[in-house]
Structure formats: structure tokens, C-alpha cells
């Protein structure tokens, strides 16, 4: 793997946590995205020379924060800064620890604003792919088979709705966290479905959307490893997607389940899906036993 490919993968994987933290700090989605973008450019210059940092996300958050503060200063908008002294603290250690303790809710918040109930489904998917996954407007437009300009507009609209909607920045309570998880799970399923049963155009399947949905589901499960619902969601996506190579014939027509060549199914993906179902069922069983004992 080339160095550039590795850095690309590191930036993609750090993105939800870094943009989530920057969004919490600056409470402005565009500013958070731009700061991450600029920090990524510095990473491309800096990492090949100095070697990759041990924790790329923390590096990007720290550099991104400074970039955004500089940008705000240049605009003469100091008063818009949150009154938070740790923004300027050279003690990165403390900032890092705070970020590490917040990152679950940061990522969840970022995912959650993308599926705000005010947004229609098509905007939710587009916003999540842009903000959380970091796909370019062009890539998303291609996935939806619409023009770049139309997609740009869709995302801009979604962003202004989100900015107008009031998503609280305090760490959510257990009940609210549960609600957010449910909404986010539904949104991830929408992303997957958009790829699995493509709604526009001639292609029946758009694999990159399915793969992105699986990546988001795994991310969510890593953040909340004991949630049976998220285990079930991830398993569902994996088991469906494992059959992808056999679902279409050479001409792109759909092959029915009983006619599919099962040797084409993705074995490790099926194994992972079944393992997650096992875990989810065990959880359910324990809940049932606990209720029974009451």
C-alpha cells in the first residue's frame, strides 16, 4: 500500500471523530468541515515527512482547532468564539483526554444531526455521506445519478435546516442517547437501501453506498458495543451485502435467490453477520431472563 493510500484511509477513519469534536467546539458545521479539510491538507504535507502520528484523530482535532480559531480571528469574529479557555491551552494532553471522553457523543451527535426529523430521507443520506463519510459532492451526485449542482443544492439546504434546528450540545442523557441511536440506525439503513435497491437510474445495485453504510454501522457498534439493536442492524447489512456478487448476472439483471451461485457469496461477511446475531440474541435472552425474574 502506498503512503498516500494509507494517509487517505487514516483521514477517512479519523473523520467522524475529528469533525464531531470540531463541531462541538465551534457549533458550526461548515466551519468544522473546513477546519478538518485544512488539517487534512497539513497532514498530507506533514505525515510523509514526520511519520504518521500515533493518534491521527487527535492530531487532526488539535490542528483543526487552531486553524479554525485563526480563521475566526481573521474574520474579526472573536465574539463568536465559545468562551472556552482550553481552545488556546498548549496542554494538548488535557484537551486530548477531554476529547477522548467525549468522542462517542461527538460522533453520535454528528450522525444524529444528519437524520434530523426535519430533513427528508434523500437529504439525510446526502448529508451523512458528505459530513460523516466525507464523500465529495461529485461522488454523492454520481451515486444518486443527479447533477453536481443539484446535489450541492440538496446538501446546502439540508445544512441550513440543521443549523436552524436546535440540537443540544450537552452530553445526552441515557433516554436521549437511546433516541439518537434509533434515529441514526434508521438513517444508516436508508443509506444501505439506497445502494441495495438503487432507486434512480439503470443500476440495480450501488455497492459503494452499501459498503459505506456497513462502515458506519460498524463505527456505531464500536462506539456502543453492547447495543443489541446495532448488532442486529450491522448483521442485517452484512448478510444482505454478502450476497452482492451473486445478485446480478453479467448483463446487470437481478438473479433470484434460489438461482444464485452461492460460491460467490462473501464467506467472512456472512460469518461476521452470524456472529453478531449470536451476540444480539444472547443479549435479548438475558434481557428476557432479567424481566422474567422481576
Amino acid at each position: 500500500m502506498t503512503e498516500l493510500a494509507w494517509i487517505g484511509a487514516a483521514l477517512t477513519s479519523a473523520r467522524p471523530r475529528a469533525v464531531g469534536a470540531l463541531y462541538r467546539h465551534f457549533r458550526n458545521l461548515d466551519l468544522a468541515e473546513e477546519a478538518f479539510q485544512d488539517a487534512s491538507l497539513r497532514a498530507l504535507k506533514n505525515w510523509p515527512q514526520n511519520g504518521p502520528p500515533r493518534d491521527p484523530a487527535s492530531w487532526l482535532i488539535f490542528v483543526g482547532k487552531n486553524i479554525a480559531i485563526d480563521a475566526l480571528r481573521r474574520q474579526g469574529k472573536q465574539e463568536a468564539l465559545p468562551s472556552d479557555e482550553r481552545l488556546e491551552a498548549p496542554d494538548t494532553d488535557l484537551a486530548e483526554r477531554l476529547d477522548a471522553s467525549n468522542y462517542r457523543d461527538d460522533v453520535l451527535r454528528l450522525l444524529f444531526i444528519c437524520c434530523h426529523p426535519d430533513l427528508p430521507a434523500s437529504q439525510q443520506i446526502a448529508l451523512a455521506l458528505r459530513v460523516v463519510s466525507g464523500l465529495s459532492v461529485k461522488q454523492i451526485a454520481r451515486a444518486f445519478l443527479i447533477t453536481d449542482a443539484a446535489m450541492e443544492q440538496r446538501i446546502t439546504r439540508a445544512k441550513s435546516r440543521v443549523a436552524a434546528a436546535d440540537v443540544p450540545f450537552e452530553a445526552p442523557g441515557p433516554g436521549e442517547r437511546e433516541q439518537r441511536l434509533t434515529a441514526v440506525a434508521a438513517m444508516i439503513y436508508l443509506v444501505f437501501n439506497e445502494g441495495y435497491a438503487a432507486s434512480g437510474g439503470d443500476a440495480h445495485v450501488r455497492a459503494p453506498l452499501c459498503e459505506e453504510a456497513i462502515r458506519l454501522a460498524r463505527l456505531l457498534l464500536r462506539l456502543f458495543p453492547t447495543e443489541p439493536e446495532i448488532m442486529g442492524l450491522t448483521a442485517l447489512l452484512l448478510l444482505q451485502h454478502a450476497r452482492m456478487p451473486a445478485r446480478l448476472d453479467a448483463s446487470g439483471a437481478i438473479v433470484l435467490l434460489e438461482d444464485q451461485d452461492r460460491r460467490l457469496w462473501n464467506g467472512p461477511m456472512i460469518a461476521e453477520g452470524l456472529a453478531l446475531i449470536d451476540k444480539a440474541m444472547r443479549n435479548r435472552l438475558q434481557i428476557a431472563i432479567a424481566i422474567h425474574r422481576l
Binding site: 500500500m1 493510500a5 494509507w6 484511509a9 477517512t12 477513519s13 479519523a14 462502515r215 463505527l219 464500536r222
Partner: peptide, 18 residues
Amino acid sequence: DSEDVVGAWTKEEDDAVI
């Protein structure tokens, strides 16, 4: 290795490494 990073590889990149 970081599972997040390896998970962000495309299928082609993963196949090439393997």
C-alpha cells in the same frame, strides 16, 4: 493495526495487501 483505518480500505486495497 487500527481497525478503523483497515476498515476504511477499499476492497481493492484490502485484496492487494492480502
